[in-house]
């Protein structure tokens, strides 16, 4: 099969906070036999506007994403939340919009990283050294789980990499991030993330892995505030092969 040309949608949170997640995603996609390109003009999927009721703002950014990712076999992001948004683009533009058909086409080839690797490429990552993952538990980010049906894929990748997952009892319950929600209603968000931390603690894991940076920053931020041994990683970070020295 011809190598797929995959456009990496970096996401604004990965760009700003944790670029390593983007590079890890590229290494994984390349290990899976893809040619990865990173369109330069990308910024954000527009979800903050869409979920704040700003239709026009969301529309403008949807068009910008469509422009940035034309001519590629797939658009992949290390985030179920952003891909969930890309899948919404036909609804964002509406059926009367001149770019509606392109939005439909983009939505059909937009994939969250782990589901792309497993469902589209049947990829199995190389084993990861045990030291980098002693006891892992996985938080299912809401958009990926309930909008895209992502639950088995990251676990399959972790298993293939030799990483055992100790399930927490409330893996599918929201961590309380919710975009602007977490700053608009901090008491509620704070209570929710504390419930998540309690669930992680009951699992006995020392590493929290998840597939969305919003959840990750929220959970990691609360872990840091309380102080404790649990570290938080994006699933791409734990799975990706080491960076080869000296470039390609």
């Amino acid at each position: 099969m011809a190598r797929r040309r995959v456009g990496l949608f970096v996401t604004c949170l990965v760009d700003f906070f944790r670029p390593e997640v983007g590079f890890a995603s590229i290494r994984l996609l390349e290990a899976a036999g893809c040619d990865v390109v990173v369109p330069e003009v990308q910024t954000c999927c527009g979800q903050p506007a869409w979920n704040s009721g700003d239709r026009q703002g969301a529309e403008a950014l949807a068009v910008a994403v469509i422009d940035a990712f034309t001519g590629l076999d797939a658009v992949v992001a290390p985030s179920g939340s952003c891909i969930g948004m890309l899948r919404q683009f036909p609804a964002v533009l509406g059926s009367a919009h001149a770019r509606h058909d392109e939005a439909v086409a983009l939505a059909a080839r937009a994939f969250e990283l782990t589901s792309f690797l497993v469902d589209e490429l049947s990829f199995e990552p190389a084993p990861v050294q045990a030291s980098s993952a002693s006891a892992v538990t996985y938080h299912d980010a809401c958009s990926g789980l309930r909008e895209l049906g992502i639950q088995a894929q990251p676990r399959a990748l972790l298993a293939a990499a030799g990483i055992a997952v100790t399930e927490m009892d409330a893996a599918t319950v929201c961590c309380g991030f919710g975009g602007t929600f977490c700053v608009k209603y901090p008491e509620i968000s704070g209570g929710m993330v504390d419930d998540k931390l309690a669930s992680i603690e009951r699992s006995g894991a020392d590493t929290l892995v998840t597939g969305d940076l919003g959840c990750l920053l929220n959970i990691e931020g609360r872990l840091a505030r309380l102080g404790g041994p649990v570290r938080a990683l994006h699933v791409a970070e734990i799975l990706a092969p080491e960076e080869s020295k000296g470039g390609k």
């Binding site: 760009d15 931020g221 840091a224």
Partner: peptide
């Protein structure tokens, strides 16, 4: 709203896109 409950994990310092551009120039 954020820091009432959480610390903010600090960014790596260089954004992905800046690092990506730099690496491509270095190649």
């Amino acid at each position: 709203g954020w820091t009432a409950w959480r610390d903010l994990p600090a960014p790596a310092g260089e954004t992905f896109h800046a690092a990506w551009r730099r690496r491509r120039h270095e190649r």
